[in-house]
């Protein structure tokens, strides 16, 4: 009797051991290669987002996760971006890093992802949700303040300006305006003549700028709150032969903007750090997958550059990112 009892005990033990070692074996075999992070940005092809992609890929390489980078070709194609998030959910991505085209429209789909236990990390442009807690991007209020300071440095503390904003109601837009006005409020002699919205379109910005120049011939500067507005304004200034007369303080550092900066058409740019956004977005997504605590807000910083400081060694990488071995998208003339 005792023998039978002992044998059954040992058999049970053996089964338990096999089970445990099986589990152990599985957990060993499951490598981090299988982790798949979906990075969905506002615009797949714009230079800014290319650098975000570089950061994401660098992080993917460092943490050994698969990165799929996607985004609409048009920043205003909200529907397409929602579809992309839906696809990521359907593909059972382990995490989604999102730069939202719209802070309201993407809330529902982000919540759906969260309900399926897929962590959502927002970068650059967040969404209005209490549930999506992590935001990695530029402190836009701070960037706005820097923009104002750059204006004072380049144009002076007594001037008339037009603010070239982009989409009224967009979080980043409002925050940059807020920061800008915070700085400008300290200078009584700076007069904001008008605030115009280019709807994140270069042509619109160009046309609006032409109108503005005709309307207010005595303005000293245009402050661009994003790359499209700044580029459009610069184009209009060249077209209207106002280079030097109307100064431009802008945002971001597309190759086009950089060229204008070097040719003194744009006097100052506030540059973000898209590489860090991509890198940290993936890094924190990876940590979220591993259930580690991640910070709610990460400021990737912004830097003011001008014609000279953009060649400082610490700024060169921000202004002239490597892109896939092609050192510069601009062509040698």
């Amino acid at each position: 009797m005792r023998l039978i009892k002992n044998i059954s005990c040992i058999t049970a033990l053996l089964i338990l051991i096999t089970f445990i070692s099986g589990c152990l074996g599985n957990s060993i075999m499951k490598s981090e290669d299988q982790i798949h992070i979906e990075v969905i940005v506002k615009n797949r092809i714009a230079p800014f987002w290319t650098v975000v992609e570089m950061g994401a890929i660098a992080a993917g390489r460092e943490f050994g996760v698969n990165i799929h980078f996607d985004g609409p070709t048009d920043e205003k194609d909200i529907e397409e971006q929602i579809n992309m998030v839906q696809r990521a959910i359907d593909l059972k991505a382990d995490a989604i890093v999102l730069a939202a085209c719209d802070s309201e429209e993407l809330v529902d789909i982000a919540h759906e992802a969260l309900s399926k236990k897929i962590p959502v990390i927002t970068i650059d442009s967040g969404i209005n949700s209490q549930k999506v807690k992590s935001f990695i991007g530029t402190d836009n209020v701070g960037a706005g303040e820097k923009l104002g300071q750059a204006l004072v440095n380049k144009v002076g503390d007594s001037c008339k300006i037009v603010v070239m904003s982009f989409v009224k109601g967009a979080a980043s837009c409002d925050q940059r305006e807020e920061g800008l006005f915070k700085t400008l409020d300290m200078y009584e002699d700076i007069q904001i003549v008008d605030i115009i919205y280019c709807n994140s379109d270069v042509d619109t910005a160009e046309n609006l700028t032409v109108e503005i120049i005709e309307k207010y011939s005595d303005i000293d500067a245009i402050v661009g709150l994003n790359a499209y507005g700044t580029t459009g304004a610069a184009k209009a200034i060249i077209e209207q032969n106002k280079v030097g007369t109307i100064k431009i303080i802008g945002f971001d550092s597309t190759p086009e903007e950089v060229r204008y900066l070097e040719r003194d058409i744009i006097q100052s740019l506030v540059v973000q750090n898209p590489f860090s956004m991509g890198y940290l977005g993936v890094k924190y997504a990876f940590e979220a997958i591993k259930n580690e605590k991640i910070p709610n807000i990460v400021d990737t910083g912004s830097t003011v550059i001008d014609k000279d400081s953009m060649f400082y060694i610490e700024n060169q990488k921000l202004v002239f990112p490597f892109t896939d071995g092609l050192s510069d998208p601009t062509v040698i003339p």
Partner: peptide, 15 residues
């Protein structure tokens, strides 16, 4: 050390 070339206008390769 690697830097952005400023020799030409409109061209900024890393060299």
């Amino acid at each position: 050390s690697p830097h952005v070339q400023r020799f030409f206008e409109n061209s900024h390769p890393w060299v």
